[in-house]
């Protein structure tokens, strides 16, 4: 099993799978991009180049997403999706045309679930779709990282940005559990934490269908326990430690990912109503995701394959 995966990975890395770049384009693009583009087959590249984005004459969309520069991100996502987490995707046909809000469980200390949801919309859906996910406010202040994520289509997590993108019929993935979800300890795996209300207000305001997503596998990728005193001392929401080297959740375990997309849910109502009045709709989404998680857990035979 392992040798097979590694062997495939090695052969994939070493042999180009066809000359996917036409000669006149080849001259104007930098070498690293030409190399990465040669890793993908021509059909997939054509689909990527046909993605509907609102790019200007310089190739940038208003948020700084650059389809050609994103190939590095797509390549990384492909490696993780295909070879590291060996993701399986179910129900991708439920993601509707036009605007959509993908609402998922969040876990695993590092947000690889977002990456794999994005990857599954690129590699398992035809035609592929770009999923925009949100990054934290501090990310733009990191050199290189902030700019690179912007080029790959990530946005700063503000309601204004989401509204703007949804009104332009884009797809956004949101994790209503937020930091509570991603940093929860191993003992709470597959137990959804409390949901925020923001995504429901956005959905109501922009009349966007909500697609429930359950990610199975991410919750075991970094088995951590929470050192509460240290977290309190440092003012962090959690201080996760792993009971084995490297102790800090730096690299996830290669669990097998299964991504389930559910049927789109439509809501209507006043986006400005009180939290209490929105709660039934939010709970409905949360319960749907929880039951999808249960079904997914029942269906799988092993954490790693």
């Amino acid at each position: 099993m392992w040798r097979g995966t590694l062997g495939r990975l090695a052969s994939r890395l070493l042999t180009p799978s066809g000359d996917a770049v036409s000669s006149d384009r080849a001259k104007s693009i930098p070498g690293w991009r030409r190399f990465l583009e040669s890793r993908f087959d021509r059909k997939f590249l054509q689909k990527i180049q046909a993605l509907p984005t609102r790019q200007n004459e310089y190739g940038y969309d208003p948020f700084g997403f650059h389809r050609d520069e994103a190939i590095a991100g797509i390549y990384l996502a492909h490696l993780m999706y295909q070879y590291y987490f060996r993701a399986e995707v179910f129900g991708q046909q439920y993601v509707p045309q036009g605007r959509a809000l993908l609402v998922s469980n969040h876990s695993g200390q590092l947000p690889f679930d977002g990456l794999i949801i994005g990857a599954s919309m690129l590699f398992a859906k035809d035609p592929p779709r770009v999923v925009r996910s949100m990054v934290d406010h501090f990310v733009p202040s990191l050199p290189f990282v902030g700019t690179t994520l912007t080029r790959w289509g990530q946005i700063i997590g503000t309601p204004e940005n989401c509204r703007h993108l949804l009104n332009d019929d884009e797809t956004i993935v949101v994790f209503p559990e937020g930091a509570r979800g991603v940093s929860k300890p191993f003992s709470k795996r597959y137990q959804l934490q409390e949901f925020g209300m923001g995504f429901m207000r956005l959905a109501l305001e922009t009349n966007t269908p909500v697609v429930p997503v359950a990610v199975i596998g991410a919750e075991e990728q970094a088995p951590c326990f929470n050192v509460k005193p240290l977290a309190r001392l440092m003012g962090l929401p959690a201080f996760p430690l792993m009971p084995f080297p490297p102790f800090f959740p730096a690299l996830p375990l290669p669990t097998k990912y299964r991504v389930y997309f559910g049927e789109a849910m439509h809501f209507s109502g006043d986006p400005d109503q009180d939290d209490e009045e929105l709660r039934p709709a939010v709970t409905q989404v949360r319960n749907t995701i929880q039951s999808m998680i249960h079904l997914g857990l029942k269906a799988r035979k092993h954490v790693f394959w």
Binding site: P62, F63, G64, H137, F138, V139, P140, S141, G146, I155, I156, T158, E160, N161, H164
Partner: peptide
């Protein structure tokens, strides 16, 4: 600012 929305109204 890093927290700015992409399009300030």
């Amino acid at each position: 600012r890093p927290e700015n929305p992409q399009f300030l109204t």
